[in-house]
Every structure is written in C-alpha cells, then in structure tokens.
Design a protein around this nucleic acid. Structure first.
Lengths: 147, 147
DNA sequence: TCCTTATTGATAATAATTATCATTATCAGT
DNA sequence: ACTGATAATGATAATTATTATCAATAAGGA
C-alpha cells in the first residue's frame, strides 16, 4: 500500500529529528501526528486539547518544547490568521502562499511560483527598500462552506 | 500652517470617537498620539512602555481598552510580523500592502492597487474557494538600514 | 539488556490579557 | 461657566498563556 502524504511527512520529520540528534519520543510523535492530521492551523493550546483525547497524553510543557524544536528544524511555521493570532502549519518546499477559509479554518497551500517579481522591483524602486521575502495569504470560503 | 498627516489622522480619529458616542479622554489621546507617531507597528506593551515616559500616563488596562475600541472602529489593525506576533498599525483607505524592515521594524504602506485579480481567479478555479480578501506583506531592509 | 543522558511530567514562575468596582472626569444640557 | 448623569479610569484581582526548574523516566547506541 502506498504511504499517504501524511505518512511521508511524518517519516521525513522523524528522519530529520534523528539526523539532528533528537530522540523520537511518544509525546513528540503525538504532537507531530496531530499537526499533520489537521486541516486547520492549530495553536499550541489547541494541539494540547486534541492530545487530551488520547489515552496517554503529553504535558503542556512538552507541547511547547516540541513546537519549538520543530520550528527550529524548519518543519513547521506560524501562520497568521485574521481575528486572532498564529496557528501551526507544516513547512513545505519552496515559497508558498496560503488560502484560509474564514468559516472552518481549512487551509490550502499554493505553490507561490506566481510571478510578482515585477511588483517587487517597482516597490524597491519606489521605497528604497530591498525586499527579500513576502507573505501572501488569501481569505475566503472553501467549497464545503459555500454549500 | 498646514496640518501634518499625523494631525489629520488624529483629528479624524477624534471625530470618529465623537460620532460613535465615545468620549475623547486623556488616556485615549495619549494612546492615539503614540500610535500615529510611530514608524513601527507597536504591541500593547510597547505602547504602554512609551506612555510611561509622559508626566501622567494611562493604566495598562486603559491601553488595552483603547486599542479594543480603536480596532472596533476600524481605525487600527494588527499587523503580523516575522518572529513574533502582531503590532498595532493605523488602517488606511482602500486595500493596502505592507513593507516591513527586518532590522528596524520601520513600516511602509503601499496602496494595494496592483492587479492580482488574475492570480485570484486562477486560485478560485483550482481550489473551489471563493476568495474575498488577501494579505500581502513584504520583508526586507529599509534604505536607512542598508547603509 | 544495560547505561548514558536527552526528555518528560509536574509544577512553580513569569508574562500578558481580561474582569471588577469604587472613584474620576467628559460633555450635553442648562 | 456650572451641573449632573454616566462613561471611563486606575488599581488590582483573576485568568490565561508561556517559560523555567528539577527529580524521575525512557530512547537508543554499545
């Protein structure tokens, strides 16, 4: 049976932990499982709440420690959302743009290969800034919530 | 003498408070003054710290209350920043994009009249989402920090 | 299986935000 | 300008979120 996208991510994350000398512990696995299973960006507290549904769950401190580690490894990032603050979301290759449903929070990642270099050049000329990165997020309603 | 941009903003903010039945008090004036004078997006705590430099300063609770009011009136918004969370920034007419210096935090507002509607249409077709808003922020180095 | 030590859980400490309530000050109506 | 109704404040308690501490535990190489 083909490994699912989620399984491939989880497996690559475990490899990354090993490569960097981090142990793959039960609490860490639980946090990674929750993050990669979610269709919405979750806050640390939301991740903790979800973990409570399991038989054995991590302490809140381990949630924060795991998130800190995953972020340092570049495996997750904070996505900023309207009317609140950031939720955790996996990092993918290349530059990405994000699409968020206002109703259900469902997130979609879009490969950010759209050409806005012309726009960036004009901004640099106008302002004297040197631009090296950008965030582009779209908000709207997903097909499920449109019904 | 011509009123400065800042004075015009402050005056329109005071009008807005009056129109909505809010009183223009000293603590509120101090908070509005600090926000409109800043070249960087400030957190509530940073605004409080700046207010402490004045002879008479607001209690921390009034800072939060004022920010809540200004946000409800649509006069300010939260700008999300890399490696931290949001800072407060005035809202301007129309759709805007933001340019933030990583070094000094200096912000520039760009009229977001650049045409990305084609991009949005393609995203809607690909994903089935209906997109009604977007955030676009650029990060880089301002001309002062480039020297 | 054993041993080293990274990691955990429990909890204390810190920081940020919100709620409470008696006192103060804005401003509409004289 | 004065006055009164009450919105707003300041002080602080309560709540919530995050970080630090440290003895006990468990991952994973030998």
């Amino acid at each position: 049976m083909e490994p699912s996208t989620k399984d491939r991510i989880l497996s690559s994350w475990q490899d990354s932990l090993h490569r960097h000398g981090f142990r793959v512990t039960r609490p860490r696995q639980q946090v990674m499982e929750i993050i990669t299973s979610s269709t919405t960006a979750l806050t640390p507290q939301e991740i903790y709440q979800k973990s409570l549904e399991e038989e054995k769950f991590p302490g809140i401190a381990s949630i924060y420690r795991t998130l800190e580690m995953l972020e340092k490894l570049g495996l997750i990032q904070q996505i900023h959302q309207p009317g609140g603050c950031h939720g955790i979301w996996p990092t993918f290759e290349g530059h990405n743009h994000y699409l968020i449903c206002r109703d259900c929070g469902q997130m979609k990642v879009i490969e950010g290969n759209e050409d806005i270099t012309g726009y960036i050049s004009r901004i640099e000329d106008q302002t004297g800034y040197r631009v090296d990165d950008h965030w582009l997020q779209f908000f709207g309603t997903c097909s499920d919530c449109l019904d």
